[in-house]
């Protein structure tokens, strides 16, 4: 494990903590896309099916369980917690996320490393993760104003993706035969989706003003 990968995992973890903190502290999920959160829960459940078949390290196993548990907890809060549920604005969160699920699964049926149950679900989770942020970005753009914690949540998620790219470059340079087309191409696509958000995030940071996305 290199420093970029570790930093990427930590910013990923941090993003989830920021989101949980926001929901817990404000008892509100305003500005948060339930659809994106549900997609992430599906992503983790589909990808970590290997929790039962492959052991990589204690670190890996621990993080997988944390990601599955935290993503389910967030979805639970938005769907079930009486106060949080009330703050969910479903009229803003209208992205047809099932289309992303269907398209990702279809793509995984054709593009995978091996035609096995685990590998197809692994590829599916990679494709779905690449586009899972879309409902969140659309919601932020629609509501215009982004509260600080939600902005930081998306910022850390984007940082995690950027650090994973550095991790792949490092591994490509240091490990013989490091080729992972599916993960790397999807990862670059995923990171590119944040470009617009990052642009406005840095502008607001530079001007010390509130983050606003143009309609």
């Amino acid at each position: 494990m290199n420093i970029f990968r570790l930093a990427g995992d930590m910013t990923h973890l941090l993003s989830i903590l920021v989101l949980l903190l926001k929901i817990y502290a404000t008892k509100s999920c305003s500005g948060v896309s339930r659809k994106t959160q549900e997609l992430y829960a599906i992503v983790f459940l589909a990808r970590y099916l290997d929790l039962f078949t492959d052991f990589i390290s204690v670190y890996n196993t621990f993080m997988k369980i944390v990601f599955i548990a935290s993503s389910l907890a967030i979805v639970w809060c938005i769907r079930v917690h009486p106060m949080v549920k009330r703050s969910y604005d479903k009229d803003l969160d209208t992205f047809r996320h099932y289309l992303l699920v269907a398209a990702s699964f279809l793509l995984a049926l054709f593009l995978h490393e091996k035609f096995t149950f685990l590998e197809i679900f692994w590829a599916f989770s990679i494709y779905l993760e690449a586009v899972a942020i879309l409902p969140q970005l659309v919601l932020l753009q629609r509501s215009g104003n982004v509260d600080n914690l939600t902005g930081q949540y998306v910022f850390f998620l984007g940082a995690y993706r950027g650090l994973y790219i550095l991790n792949w470059i490092y591994r490509y340079l240091t490990e013989p035969r490091f080729t992972r087309w599916i993960a790397c191409v999807s990862g670059v696509v995923q990171t590119a989706l944040y470009a617009d958000f990052f642009y406005y995030y840095f502008i607001s940071w530079k001007n010390n003003s509130k983050l606003k996305l143009p309609a």
């Binding site: 990968r5 995992d9 990923h12 990808r47 290997d50 492959d54 990589i56 890996n60 993080m63 997988k64 990601f67 490393e113 692994w122 994973y164 991790n167 993960a183």
Partner: peptide, 10 residues
Amino acid sequence: GVERKYHDEL
């Protein structure tokens, strides 16, 4: 050779 561990990332 040793089979590489495929999915060692998260």
